[in-house]
């Protein structure tokens, strides 16, 4: 099995965040769950997936706030956080702990 963002030792809340994030991406990108399940830490997002334009990313961020009960500040949003699935997951985890 390829190393994925979920392959590292995780606590329940970490895997819950991972599952929620994948579900949101599946909804926003209209991809089936299996395809999104195959995303690993290096899977490119913003700038790599044609479906993920600025409006789709905005939808993604707002939905992350609603489903993960976090607040994303303007300063949080940068290229690094949005570039890969691993970057986005790490951000979501950090925010959840902070929140």
């Amino acid at each position: 099995m390829a190393e994925t963002a979920t392959a590292e030792p995780t606590g329940p809340s970490r895997s819950a965040i991972d599952a929620t994030l994948r579900a949101i991406l599946s909804d926003v990108l209209a991809l089936d769950a299996e395809r999104v399940e195959g995303f690993d830490g290096d899977t490119g997002l913003f700038g790599h997936l044609p479906e993920l334009d600025s409006m789709a990313v905005a939808t993604l961020l707002t939905e992350m706030e609603d489903r993960l009960h976090i607040i994303i500040e303007d300063d949080d949003v940068d290229g690094e956080m949005l570039e890969t699935y691993g970057g986005l997951l790490a951000f979501a985890e950090a925010k959840t702990i902070e929140g």
């Binding site: 913003f46 600025s54 409006m55 990313v57 905005a58 939808t59 961020l61 303007d74 949003v77 290229g79």
Partner: peptide, 25 residues
């Protein structure tokens, strides 16, 4: 208000793509 937040974020991201740009706020 949530829809406005999304629109402002989309605008900000699209401005950032062309260099610089404003924050949603």
């Amino acid at each position: 208000a949530r829809a406005l937040t999304s629109l402002a974020r989309a605008q900000s991201l699209s401005e950032a793509e062309t260099g610089g740009g404003r924050q949603p706020a």
